[in-house]
Design a protein around this nucleic acid. Structure first.
Length: 210
DNA sequence: ACATTAAGTGATT
DNA sequence: AATCACTTAATGT
């Protein structure tokens, strides 16, 4: 396991930091569908995604939830940074989209490393920047795009992060992620199928050319 | 064969 | 784009 982590971090961090990560980090596995973080949870750790994909959702007070973006290997979450530093409650939900592996580091360490290691600081800032961009993109799609375009982006993002050409999902699940009704999703998907962009099967969607 | 769940569709708002 | 009220199709037992 130690070697595995070293391989993973070697490109980004110096030996000393990697040793510290290996020493204090707690590696956890999440099965598909498992919750890493829920809205309102108190966050006292900082997660590195070693393997797998997480989807990040925002939820309003009525329980309407919308997928903001997906996290991939090597990513971490900006929302979680802020929360970690202030020991505040989470503003998002993080659900494992595939079986995933995460290394958790407690907030205290995070603070120390931020000061101690330049490479860590860079990683955090860069990652923060990336999340911010994705967040703005998400806001843009939510505010200005119609459902057909939102669905396209959703499908596009999903095949991108999962690196697959067939999505194992139901119309209902997509509807939840986009916060719309199943009927609407079914109709829009049917449209895409007629345009030759996808092929629909039960519980599956083949992506032909988006 | 039957029940359950996913997906398709016309009509209405 | 959402909702209703169905129908049809696929799958599990």
């Amino acid at each position: 396991m130690k070697d595995k982590l070293k391989d993973f971090f070697a490109l980004q961090f110096e030996e000393e930091l990697i040793d510290e990560i290996v020493e204090v980090g707690e590696v956890k596995f999440y099965r598909e569908g498992e919750l890493l973080l829920n809205v309102g949870d108190k966050v006292n750790f900082f997660p590195f995604l070693l393997r797998g994909v997480f989807k990040i959702l925002s939820e309003d007070k009525h329980g309407n939830e919308v997928v903001m973006y997906f996290l991939e290997r090597g990513d971490t979450c900006a929302c979680v940074f802020i929360n970690s530093l202030n020991a505040e409650k989470s503003c998002i939900r993080a659900v494992a989209e595939t079986d995933s592996e995460v290394i958790l580091i407690n907030v205290k360490q995070f603070d120390d490393w931020l000061v101690k290691y330049k490479t860590f600081r860079n990683y955090v800032l860069e990652s923060y920047n990336l999340r911010l961009k994705e967040m703005i993109e998400a806001i843009d799609t939510l505010a200005f795009k119609k459902m057909d375009q939102r669905l396209l982006k959703y499908l596009h993002d999903k095949v991108q992060v999962l690196r697959v050409t067939t999505l194992n999902t139901t119309h209902q699940e997509i509807a939840y992620d986009l916060n719309t009704s199943r009927v609407v999703v079914s109709r829009l998907l049917k449209q895409l199928e007629n345009e030759g962009k996808i092929k629909l099967r039960r519980n599956k969607i083949d992506i032909l050319n988006l």
